[in-house]
Every structure is written in C-alpha cells, then in structure tokens.
C-alpha cells in the first residue's frame, strides 16, 4: 500500500472542501472497496479523510412522503429498517443479496453506490486495463468475459457495476443529495449519477472533485409486489450473473431494472410499458443493441428467463 496521511472530518462541507483542495485525497467511510484496491495499489490516495464521525447515519421520513437515508447508514441497517422492509422491500432484498454479513456491517449507503465498477482484469495489475491505465487497452475484450457486460459497453471497457443495492435504488428513482466543495448542496437523480464507459471508463460517476454524498432520498412508496432475483454461481456471497429488480402492480404494469449486465444499473423505461406483454417483449427492448462475447452471450436468455420467473412470481 502506498503511504498516505490520515485525518478525520468534522463537517461534510469541510470534508468536501478539503478533498477538492488536496490533490490525491479521498474520503473513506466503510473502506471495504477502497482499502482492498489500495492494497493492490490500484487506488493510491496520498491523503485519506475519514468521514465516519459526520453522523449521516439516520433513516427518517422525508417531506416528500418518502425516506431520507443518511450516506453513512450501513447496508445491514438499511436492509433491516422497518420502513424499508415494509415500503421498499426490493431495496432490502437487493441489499441482503449482496456481499457477506461482515461486509454489510461495514459498507455504507453512499459507498455502495460509489464502489468501483470492476472486473477481474481491473484487479490484475499485470494486465492492461483502460480503467486503471487509460489507453492501455481492455483485456476482457478477447479475454475471459463470462461475467461481463452486454449492454451500454464500449471498445474501452465491458466491466459491470457490482452493486445489488444500486439496482434497487435505480428502480426506485432515488436521488442523491450532495455537498460540493464550495459548501453548496444539490440533488442528483440516480440515473445521472453513474456513467457508461465510453472512451473514459476510468470516470464512473458525475460527482465533482470533493463532492460528498450526504444522503439518498427515496420517493413516496409505490406499492406493488417487490422482487429482487439474483442469479449467481453460488447460492450466497457471489456477484450476479444477472439480477432483476422489479415492482409489479396488480394490473401487471410496473418497473424493472437489471444488474450484472452493464457498467451501471440498467433500466429502460420504454421497455416497462411492455410488461403486460410478457418477458420476451420487455427483454427485447431492455437489451436492444446488446453486444455479447462468446462467453457472456448466455446472459440475454438468462435475463429473459429470470424476468419471466419474476413476472410469474409477481402474480402470486
């Protein structure tokens, strides 16, 4: 691990300003992804600002009738929260499908959203990777790519966003609340938070330097049947091959988002209008322009079948 200096932040605005001012500095909260990458010298911050003392760990009813989730609420606590379990069950389910008990106790809500989009070649510092070293090339294209993305990809990167929680947040139309280095706050719809790889897969989100997520806001509960189905190689503690988050209303209409298929949580609102026509029609539009490799072509059929199963379950 590269050497760094360490400091504890006492206010969100100060932390944002400090990170923006000091080149090479980063926030640390749970640390489960950042420290892992620092050990491999994939992340090499020269200064860490620990934000764990900022509070930001409450879940409270919001003025819009929804829920305001502090950025530092641990994944375990978010999944177990009584409002989330009752009104946003798809979020509880997604959280509980991710990582292990130990990691969920450490990982935070904002940290989960901002974990690196990654693949085994990103972690293998002996191999070229455009995320690690822009311009070096993508080892996954032409390499082993069974786990990789099939939509929204580019010639620079086919890594997938590993979060389950983010898929549910995207389905729920969450917004993130931030404080910028100038002390001003803003809100960003989650659809605008994560980026597709394009020619700059090393840039994964739209936050400004130093901008700190302080909360995630959920809109008013929408009712319906909430389902999160994760298909993976092990029954527990494994990344998704494909995951489907869905909220289905009694009339068969609803919303659906996918994990394990793209550089960010994948949702196509126009496809949702076809939900009453069944999984085939929806998948066709969700995965229009899919570009698969020999290894991951199976994901197209797996999405359709998983969605069919989810829609069937939603009928009760």
């Amino acid at each position: 691990m590269k050497a760094f200096t360490y400091d504890r932040a006492t206010s969100a605005a100060e932390a944002a300003s400090a990170v923006a001012k000091t080149t090479g500095s980063k926030f640390i909260a749970g640390g489960t992804n950042l420290l892992d990458l620092m050990k491999l010298q994939i992340e090499t911050p020269s200064h860490l600002i620990d934000i764990n003392d900022l509070g930001l760990d409450q879940i409270e009813p919001a003025t819009n009738g929804g829920l305001r989730i502090g950025a530092l609420v641990r994944n375990t606590d978010l999944a177990a929260n009584e409002y989330v379990r009752r009104d946003y069950a798809v979020l509880s389910r997604a959280l509980l499908a991710g990582a292990s008990g130990q990691l969920r106790n450490q990982a935070t809500t904002a940290g989960n959203l901002l974990q690196r989009t990654r693949c085994p070649y990103f972690y293998d510092t002996n191999m070229p990777c455009n995320k690690r070293e822009p311009g070096r090339g993508c080892s996954a294209l032409g390499g082993y790519s069974r786990m990789h993305a099939i939509v929204g990809i580019s010639d620079a990167c086919i890594a997938t966003h590993p979060s389950d929680m983010a898929v549910a947040m995207r389905l729920l139309d969450a917004t993130v609340e931030t404080v910028r280095s100038n002390g001003l706050t803003r809100t960003i719809p989650i659809v605008e938070l994560h980026r597709l790889p394009g020619n700059t897969p090393n840039i994964e989100h739209t936050l400004e330097p130093g901008e700190l997520i302080t909360a995630v806001l959920l809109p008013k509960p929408s009712g319906g049947t909430h389902i999160y189905r994760k298909v993976r190689d092990r029954a527990s503690y494994a990344f998704a091959l494909v995951s489907v988050a869905a909220i289905i209303q009694p009339d068969g209409s609803g919303k659906v988002a996918l994990g394990g298929v793209a550089h960010k949580p994948w949702r196509v609102e126009s496809a949702e209008r076809k939900l009453q026509r069944g999984s085939k029609a929806v998948t066709k539009e969700l995965l229009a322009n899919a570009r698969t490799t020999h290894d991951n072509a199976f994901k197209v059929q797996l999405v359709e079948r998983t969605l069919a199963s989810v829609l069937n379950d939603a009928k009760g």
Partner: peptide
C-alpha cells in the same frame, strides 16, 4: 458487530 478486520484501518 462482526466485521472483517483486514478491510478497516
């Protein structure tokens, strides 16, 4: 709470 002590400073 149980945590992995390798992933915290």
């Amino acid at each position: 709470r149980r945590i992995t002590s390798c992933l915290t400073l």
